[in-house]
Computed example of a mutant assay.
Amino acid sequence: MTIGDDGSRSTIYKRKGIGEREPVRGNKDFGDNLQFLADFSTNQTNSSSKPTQPIDVNNRFQVPSPSTRHQYVGFVGDEALLSIPNNCPKLTLLHLADTTSLGNTRGNPNHDGYTSEDARISHVTLVDFFSGLPLIEELVLDVCKNMRDSGLALEVLGSKCPKLRVLKLGQFHSVCMAVGSNLDGVALCEGLESLSIKNSADLDDMRLIEIGRGCGRLKRFEAIGCKRITVKGVRTLACLLTKSLVEVKISCCINLDAAGTLRALDPSPKFVI
Rank of each mutant, 00 (worst) to 15 (best):
S122K: 09
R228S: 11
I136Q: 07
T92E: 13
L141F: 15
L192C: 04
V234F: 02
R148W: 08
L203D: 01
A238T: 12
D32G: 13
G26F: 14
S268C: 09
G74T: 11
G185H: 11
Y13I: 11
D128P: 00
G212E: 06
L241T: 06
A153M: 04
L265Q: 05
T261K: 07
S41P: 07
P134W: 00
I121N: 08
V248C: 01
L126V: 02
E210R: 09
G7V: 06
C161T: 07
T115N: 10
M206C: 02
S181A: 13
C176Q: 08
E155I: 02
K227S: 06
T230K: 09
F271N: 00
L96H: 12
L256Y: 01
K232Y: 14
R217H: 12
R228Q: 14
D6A: 05
L93K: 14
S67Y: 12
D205I: 09
E190Y: 04
S159M: 09
I12Y: 07
I250L: 11
L164K: 01
E20N: 12
D184P: 13
L37F: 10
F271P: 01
L256K: 01
L82C: 07
D6W: 03
R213F: 04
Q62L: 15
K160D: 08
F129R: 04
R21H: 13
L96C: 10
L133G: 03
D56V: 13
S48P: 05
Y114C: 00
N199T: 02
G74E: 03
G132V: 06
F75E: 06
L96S: 11
S8M: 13
S150Q: 02
S200Y: 05
L240M: 07
